[in-house]
């Protein structure tokens, strides 16, 4: 297979991780209005946990599943701290999640040290493309599809959307708004954890990988203003592909800047449009 095709597949694979991280941000933001700065920590914690579980002899699949589960549980904890105290504003919640992200550093270094770690993914290659990338793409497609179904087709998903749309009315029909928020944090945590677990075999992870991940996830999600899951997927894939192409044809040195510049351009363009609307 040609060089271009390889870059494309690699890019889509990376993009899937960004889309998963970004979707976690979106789920949490929609329901709680908190921009979860600790979103990257879910990925790091999930991935580091998997390294330990694999070393302890657990089979692949089980170890990864437990890593994702742990990330979901950590998500609930983050949610409890960031939204559990009555009267905590979303702004305060953002700062609290920032603090929790730093706290995760302490935990991660304590258990795993400060050196990068990795674990083997799906071995082999198909037509010059690492099979693991295909696994990333497949799993992401299934999981994001299932998440979309959860929101569109189940009463729990409807209740989550209802909480996001109108917390007062949600309370009036008996929806426990706080519990919905925590559930959103659990889903967000699991999605973040999955991103970390999937990406680590092709990209090492260390305790401070969270900043790059949360920035990429935010960049993906900002395309849909942090509320649109579909656009978040598009944003993530776009970002991953552009990064892979820049890395392949220009220089790998510029790869990580792609997400940052993309984010700034989208943010500034959006603010400019908002100003125009306000002026009109």
């Amino acid at each position: 297979m040609g060089e271009l095709a390889q870059y494309l597949v690699t890019g889509v694979g990376l993009g899937c991780a960004y889309a998963l991280t970004g979707s976690g941000l979106v789920v949490i933001y929609r329901v709680t209005r908190v921009v979860n700065f600790a979103q990257g920590s879910f990925a790091v914690l999930g991935a580091l946990t998997v390294t330990t579980l694999l070393a302890a002899g657990l089979p692949h699949g089980v170890a990864e599943g437990l890593g994702v589960l742990l990330a979901g549980l950590v998500g609930v904890l983050v949610g409890v701290v960031a939204t559990g105290k009555p009267g905590t504003t979303p702004q305060a919640g953002l700062i609290v999640t920032l603090g929790l992200g730093v706290f995760a550093y302490a935990v991660e270094i304590f258990f795993w040290g400060d050196q990068p770690r990795s674990f083997p993914g799906l071995p082999g290659a198909v037509g010059g493309i690492q099979t693991h990338y295909l696994l990333i793409i497949g799993v992401t497609a299934v999981v994001l599809g299932a998440t979309a179904l959860l929101f569109a087709r189940t009463d729990l998903g409807r209740a989550l959307t209802a909480t996001a749309a109108d917390p007062y009315a949600a309370r009036a029909v008996g929806i426990d708004v706080v519990r919905m928020g925590l559930f959103a944090f659990a889903v967000g945590g699991a999605l973040g954890g999955l991103a970390g677990v999937l990406i680590t075999p092709v990209q090492q992870v260390s305790f401070d990988s969270d900043v790059a991940l949360v920035v990429s996830g935010f960049s993906a999600a900002i395309l849909g203003n942090l509320t649109r899951p579909g656009l978040t997927l598009v944003g993530g894939l776009l970002l991953g592909v552009v990064q892979a192409l820049v890395g392949g044809y220009l220089s790998t040195a510029y790869q990580s800047e792609v997400a940052l510049i993309f984010m700034l351009v989208v943010l500034i363009a959006r603010a400019g449009r908002r100003d125009l609307v306000e002026a009109a």
């Binding site: 921009v35 700065f37 702004q91 953002l94 900043v211 920035v215 935010f218 900002i222 990580s256 940052l260 984010m263 700034l264 943010l267 500034i268 603010a271 400019g272 908002r274 100003d275």
Partner: peptide
């Protein structure tokens, strides 16, 4: 960037530093 608010400005300033 100062037209941005809240979390948007937070992420924009972070991006500029990186």
């Amino acid at each position: 960037i100062l037209r941005l608010r809240g979390h948007q400005l937070a992420f924009a300033t972070l991006a500029l530093q990186i």
